[in-house]
């Protein structure tokens, strides 16, 4: 279990690694395809492909001061255009990425905290173009772990309420973050972050009778 808030400096590589782990747990449908990927002027922390074949930029900042959050928000908006312009090219050049024609790009922006003005600004964007996620940096067995927190109503299309706790723990409320799907909700509610995967069914493992050598003619 995570035990302490992380104190001290965090290197960007460690932060991205922790972010990958957090998204793997809570948004397994996002297929991460690149890290530290240069966009218009600054690198995306992560670039992913979503379930609808859309490009998704993921940016994270450890600073929650208004200027840093606003800069990140601006970059997230700029990513939408940058990715939209490249979508067709990537479709042709990298057909294996799983991109879909016409899928609109999205941005996910993570900050320890967002101010009210910025959250209000995000409400004006068409859903789900930009998602704001808050997170906490925790120490778990000496390793950095990110805990993504529930989305605030202001970000899910509903009006924000002051009663909404700004830093509610992840397991205290249903996670309603938008690119996170039903399986992610399930995994987020379990203590184990890893999920067994198989496409097999029980009947696939049913042994068939082997051809009997003695019945073959020489």
């Amino acid at each position: 279990m995570a035990d302490l808030e992380w104190t001290g400096t965090i290197e960007s590589a460690s932060l991205r690694r922790a972010l990958r782990g957090a998204l793997r747990r809570q948004a397994p449908e996002l297929r991460l395809i690149a890290e530290d990927f240069l966009a218009e002027e600054s690198p995306l922390d992560l670039l992913a492909v979503g379930t609808d074949g859309e490009l998704v930029s993921v940016r994270i900042s450890l600073n929650s001061d208004p200027a840093s959050a606003a800069l990140l928000f601006t970059r997230g908006l700029a990513d939408l255009r940058w990715l939209r312009l490249r979508h067709q090219d990537l479709l042709k050049l990298a057909p294996g990425l799983g991109l879909e024609v016409g899928a609109e790009p999205r941005s996910i922006i993570l900050c320890p905290e967002f101010g009210q003005e910025l959250r209000r600004a995000a409400e004006n964007l068409p859903d789900p173009a930009v998602r704001l996620l808050t997170f906490r940096s925790l120490r778990q067995q000496g390793q950095l772990m990110l805990l993504l927190e529930p989305q605030k109503p202001a970000l899910t299309g509903a009006r924000a309420t002051e009663e909404t706790p700004a830093t509610a723990p992840l397991d205290s409320a249903p996670v309603v973050v938008q690119p996170i799907s039903a399986p992610a909700l399930q995994s987020a509610s379990h203590p184990s972050s890893s999920t067994f995967r198989t496409g097999l069914r029980s009947e696939d493992l049913r042994l068939e009778p082997l051809p009997r050598e003695s019945h073959r003619k020489a």
């Binding site: 782990g21 793997r24 067995q141 999920t195 496409g199």
Partner: peptide, 20 residues
């Protein structure tokens, strides 16, 4: 898988990815 994943998570803070 779940047994090993739990141990690795607890002891090594390491996620274990399932490959069936």
């Amino acid at each position: 898988y779940e047994s090993l994943a739990k141990s690795m998570r607890h002891e090594l803070s390491q996620d274990l990815v399932s490959y069936g």
